[in-house]
Amino acid sequence: MINPIKWKFTFVLLIIGLMVAVQYNTVKSPEVRDTRDIWAIRNELATEKKLHSELLSEIRELDNTIHTYESLEDKNTGKALTETVDKLYQQAGMTDISGPGMVIKVKPSKESIAYGIPITGISPELLTRFVNDLNRFKGNVLEVDGKRFTTLSSIRDINGITAVNGLNVSNPPFEMKIITPSFSDGEKLYNYLLASSIHDDFYLDNLILEIGKPKNNIKIRGWHEKFENRFLNELPKGE
């Protein structure tokens, strides 16, 4: 029979061992501290404030729409709904649009042509990086190789070929069109793209960006694919 004193002594040692192990693990793996400098934190704070401002603008716009509906008479409700639908079609990129902007040509680099390097299509990662760089400026409309790019668009690799909205992007050379809110915004975007480090990313893939100067009239086609409605149903009249 086990001596009760030895059993209690063993139990106490077991508890002490567990406590020492927990303490050692805590000391060995301290809580990760934020080691960013003040400027990195300020940049992140500025990004969050910008996002907060954009969300407030969207909420304000929706509140204005609700106020418009509430202040309208029954006979004008249909007109207001039609205007809202037209606005949503424009935001979704379903309509043709024209305005100030620029044309950007994606071409193989001169070195790749001189050395006979095979010309391959732009990678999804590189195209996504370009779109993210472009999104630093709000209110722009983009077309990639004749394909309208919106917030609903996707950039994917399909069988080794980059596709936008499920449609293959041509091998370079091809064009990208950008429409800006105003001509002055186009000039700012033009100067930014000229100095952007995105050129280095393209050059590493044996591609170059030829940034066209801003013009007053750039035309972009709408996305004519129809949306699939799976959830909304039209109610019979009178209900």
Rank of each mutant, 00 (worst) to 15 (best):
N3R: 08
P4L: 00
L13Y: 04
L18N: 06
A21Y: 01
V22G: 01
E44Y: 05
L45R: 10
T47K: 15
L51N: 02
S53L: 14
E54L: 11
L55N: 12
E58W: 05
H67S: 04
E70S: 00
K75W: 11
G78W: 09
A80W: 09
D86P: 05
Y89Q: 13
Q90K: 13
I97E: 02
G99C: 09
G99P: 14
G101Y: 05
K105N: 06
K105S: 12
I117S: 00
I117T: 04
S123R: 08
L126K: 07
F130E: 08
V131K: 13
N132M: 12
L134H: 03
N135P: 13
N135V: 06
N135G: 14
F137W: 08
V144H: 08
R148A: 01
F149K: 00
S153T: 12
G160A: 09
N165I: 08
N165Q: 08
L167C: 03
E175D: 12
M176L: 15
K177S: 01
P181F: 05
S184N: 09
S184W: 04
Y192H: 11
S197D: 15
I198V: 13
H199P: 12
H199D: 10
D200L: 11
I208E: 15
W223C: 04
H224T: 12
F227I: 10
F231L: 13
L232S: 05
G238S: 03
